[in-house]
């Protein structure tokens, strides 16, 4: 093994250890010391058992864990893709075409500081607790960072690179596609990543307030029924999904956003 690999291996061991220590502390505090009553903070083994049961059991909220995950995922994807498909081109157009910037910027500056979660009550009164209201919230959560990052990415295009393209006779549109967009890509991509995080948070918040299925709904039902084990299963599921999403973005980034750095 090379020194580099050895070091990487050691770092992995340390990460693994830290997770084990976390679980051990949790176990000792709950099962051994009983610092909190089991109904408010169950020990890790109970949580793991609940997790396994929940994979196939519809108790107590009418759906299995995979069904909840799928429901949340479906809505998240619908709103997210809509937000990206509209937000990125709009941001690029704002950054490249000055009249688009003049028209969109004022509205956009007004909408930008509104936290997406603040829209939940409005959306629920407008569309009810179905898929539409949540998709709208996620759309809003996604479209803002998509626009912000695409817009500033395009705005940061180096003048000298545009000059280079122009000395080669590149038209305005060619300059956009060969220079501005590729150079903005890392930034646009960072926007997509942020958008994913924000929209996922927005979704769970919306589900906590009103839903009939989904991870947030599972957590809020469990809270009403004092099922702390299921709450924790829900939280760990969210954490795990977060890691998976992050990995997927890493893979896409390695594959498509190369060159820079």
């Amino acid at each position: 093994m090379s020194t580099y690999k050895k070091r990487q291996f050691r770092l992995r061991i340390v990460s693994l250890l830290s997770i084990l220590v976390f679980l051990a502390v949790w176990y000792v505090c709950t099962a051994v010391l009983r610092l909190a009553p089991a109904y408010s903070l169950p020990d890790p083994i109970t949580v793991f058992q609940s997790f396994v049961t929940k994979l196939s059991s519809r108790v107590p909220d009418g759906a299995t864990l995979p069904q909840h995950i799928w429901e949340s995922f479906k809505i998240a994807m619908a709103g997210y893709l809509m937000g990206v498909v509209i937000g990125v081109p709009l941001g690029i157009a704002m950054g490249w075409v000055s009249w688009v910037e003049k028209i969109v910027r004022p509205v956009f500056d007004f909408l930008k500081p509104i936290p997406p979660i603040a829209l939940i009550p409005v959306m629920i009164t407008l569309f009810g607790i179905g898929i539409e209201s949540k998709a709208c919230i996620i759309f809003f959560s996604t479209v803002i960072p998509s626009i912000v990052n695409s817009y500033s990415g395009i705005k940061q295009t180096s003048q000298i690179h545009l000059w280079v393209a122009r000395t080669f006779g590149a038209s305005n549109l060619q300059q956009l596609f060969t220079v501005a967009i590729p150079s903005a890509l890392p930034m646009i991509f960072a926007g997509l990543r942020v958008a994913m995080g924000v929209s996922w948070m927005g979704l769970v918040a919306a589900e906590l307030m009103g839903a009939t299925r989904g991870i947030g709904y599972m957590i809020s039902t469990a809270r009403n029924l004092l099922r702390a084990d299921i709450i924790i299963v829900g939280l760990l599921t969210l954490g795990f999904i977060g890691i998976v999403i992050s990995l997927v973005f890493d893979l896409i980034e390695i594959k498509f956003v190369r060159g820079g750095k």
Binding site: I160, W163, T178, P182, R258
Partner: peptide, 16 residues
């Protein structure tokens, strides 16, 4: 114009 090429002081290659 494409008939006049430029090589710049600092490299201005397209990093992407």
């Amino acid at each position: 114009s494409p008939s006049r090429g430029m090589v710049y002081q600092t490299t201005n290659l397209f990093m992407w």
